[in-house]
Design a protein around this nucleic acid. Structure first.
Lengths: 335, 335
DNA sequence: TTGTAAGCGTTATCAG
DNA sequence: CTGATAACGCTTACAA
């Protein structure tokens, strides 16, 4: 392991000069600087972040925390979000630290990587609404931005898609196609985006004075399997819905499969709307009408905000809600 | 920032006792241990990895290096691989460090995170065949495992899919369906898996004594766009192929689009085989015949190997080549 | 069983 | 412009 000392010895200067050169700090004679730089290259010296971090309390990485999926890289929704995060980090020379999870994350674990000084801040994606850890973040004064988890606490910056509007648009689209019996395949209600999409669904029905039937709302968890199961339940109802809004595309895919198995055609026999606009939505048969989120931009913005928070300790940043769009394809039929 | 000192003061012991307790090292009186543990919890003390690392030369994280895509999370191929990596890391308490890339990675950058002591080892995915950095890894004695980059150097452990066999199987499948005019949409030839799939294609043609026509081999780069472009070129040939093998599913999707635009039906007018078996392959119309890789297992194994290498410095590990499978769906027609 | 001293590689501070 | 010294939080080695 090559250290400043080694470089210093070879260059015939003290190690402080090396430190000054690599940090561009203080005044160093141009000749000395050039020489040091040359030797650094020759020897293949790299500054040791651990040593530096011990002084500066800095590592140059941010932790991305995904409390819920088993697999971080499991869904395209996260994928796009993370692509945006990556871009922002690349532009600002930050690295991304991922905490693989055994099972469910427990109490203090959100903060662990930060408290252990492995990262400079936290990007938390879709935490539980009632999450107590969010409170601790403030207490430990960890720089933090939350994605998809609109918080009650004023001091926590969040980046959200407009899930209420999205839920509304999807449902309204079905209503405008003369559907009144509209099922909803929900995501987790204890995650903000799941809850908000349901809220949007409710708002739309209310606006158009359509009664809400509890049996039309089936609990799911954003997975393909739960979309399949929920759809099956809806289809077995005595008076089954003529249209279904799934809280994400993955569940819509599951619903599609259920319909197929029951020999029902989409959209002829039953209409379907998803959420997210993942790549498959466009390729599935029939192409899925869905709500598009700007996930990449959301991830990018969130990471940028976090980095700014880390760099300018005091800075107050405004939370932001990103717009959503209805993407009309072929899975909805006019009644 | 709460340090061992703070805990020690409160517990009325020296900070060495704290160190012993959190590392389960040396003998500590049960009573003292219990007390220290209690206070650690009370105060919310977390060991500072930077301080520890400075002594142990250890951080508890591995770097995942993806030299080529613009976006780390861009393709499902990487996604599955990373899911496997995540699992292995979760089981062994390692974190994953990702180096976002501005553009192309330059010379020493593979090793940067390791040399800066940000990570304990390197997992490199699909490096350039001629990559000079691979040599440096040895020189710097960085623990390292390479995925999809079968190396000439004996001392570098790699985990590969059997790309030669995969390329062979895909091509042979077409031959068995009486195709002789078979196009190939290549990936990068300077990445091992790209090169090997082409090799498999060649092997199959040779075995069945079908001449290789250079104009049937179009250069691509694993992207949707390049699949589209390559297919277009093939379709404009005077004597166009009756079947096409694309070096990955993404390119096959691009090819599909090109065929559609040229009013050619798959598989009626032209047969198509992909590679990877990504999720969309099963949903696209027609469902795509393809070669399945065991990406998850590959990622898992690679990470596990790396962790073993890190932990047992001396251990020699055998490189492994994972099998592949032909998945027959509906994109190939018998002539 | 517990404590003391030294050192890991770096930066901050102050002196020259 | 440059260098010496202390400090960051921790572990290793040794002493009590």
């Amino acid at each position: 392991m090559i250290s400043q000392k080694d470089v210093a010895k070879k260059a015939g200067v003290s190690f402080m000069t090396i430190s000054r050169v690599i940090n561009n700090k203080g005044n160093v004679d141009e000749k000395t600087r050039a020489k040091v730089l040359r030797i650094i290259k020759e020897m293949g010296y790299y500054p040791n972040i651990l040593g530096r971090g011990l002084n500066t309390n800095t590592t140059g990485s941010i932790s991305v925390i995904i409390p819920f999926t088993t697999h971080i890289f499991g869904t395209e929704y996260y994928t796009e979000l993370l692509n945006g995060v990556e871009r922002a980090c690349a532009e600002n020379n930050y690295e991304i630290l991922l905490n693989p999870k055994k099972e469910e994350i427990t109490r203090l674990d959100y903060l662990k990587s930060f408290l252990e000084r492995k990262s400079d801040g936290l990007l938390i994606i879709a935490p539980r609404i009632d999450d107590e850890q969010i409170r601790l973040i403030d207490e430990k004064s960890a720089p933090c931005v939350v994605i998809d988890g609109r918080q009650a606490q004023k001091n926590i910056v969040f980046i959200d898609g407009d899930n209420i509007k999205g839920g509304f648009l999807a449902t309204e689209h079905l209503v405008r196609n003369n559907h009144t019996k509209i099922g909803f395949l929900s995501g987790w209600e204890f995650v903000r985006n799941g809850d908000d999409r349901l809220k949007g669904y409710r708002n739309a029905l209310k606006k158009y004075q359509i009664g809400i039937r509890p049996e039309y709302i089936r609990k799911g968890d954003f997975t393909y399997a739960s979309g399949y199961a929920g759809m099956m339940e809806l289809l077995k109802l005595a008076e089954r819905p003529t249209a279904v809004f799934a809280a994400n595309d993955l569940m819509a895919m599951g619903a599609l499969k259920a319909a197929k198995e029951m020999n029902l055609k989409i959209p002829d026999d039953i209409s379907l709307v998803g959420y997210d606009d993942i790549a498959i939505a466009n390729y599935v048969v029939p192409p899925l009408t869905t709500i598009k989120q700007f996930s990449y931009e959301m991830g990018y913005t969130a990471a940028l905000y976090l980095i700014r928070k880390i760099r300018n300790k005091g800075e107050k940043l405004e939370s932001r809600i990103f717009d959503v769009e209805l993407i009309e394809r072929d899975s909805v039929r006019k009644l």
